[in-house]
Amino acid sequence: MSPANSSPAFAEELRAALGPRLLRVESWQGREAAVVEPEAWLEAVRLLKSRGYDFLMDLSAADYSGFPGHQAPPLGVSLQLFGSGTRRRAWLKAYLPLEGARLATLSDEFACANWYERECWDMFGVEFVGHPHLKRLLLYEEFQGHPLRKDYPILKSQPLIPMRNAVDYESVAAARRAAADEDGLGRG
């Protein structure tokens, strides 16, 4: 990875602004991710956005339940910001519990956060507080569970669901025939 990718400067800025709410900096092969407290999520993003990281490249999560040596709460939401001018990347992470996983929405900061957060809700069950339209994106509303969590069995089957907004076609057809008769147009 090129050096521009692995700038820890963003972590220092976060440390200065957030203090102890920046929990730690994870480092994997030169890629640094700042782990912040979930309550500081929006603040951290706003700070980075004001420092030139004005582009939301990716937002997703991973379930670390059972991950060897993992101490923090299991649900790791990971965010990647990018500087459209500086070409630098910044990674931000927040670890949430499986039950009642909540995070502030970024949809006011970035337009694409809307869909990324919907996907994250769909797949991991992270509730983004303040999201304007938090509804499943890839799956359907009646789907039970959040499939990318590790406790979702790969062979789990989903129940059949009733037809949504089923229209009574017979009565619609009858009403149409009646209207056509009234117009004198005959049976259309």
Binding site: S60, A62, A111, N114, W115
Partner: peptide, 12 residues
């Protein structure tokens, strides 16, 4: 995780 390039475009 795949960051699909047409995902953000479709969201717009």
């Amino acid at each position: 995780r795949v960051r699909p390039p047409c995902f953000p475009i479709m969201s717009g």
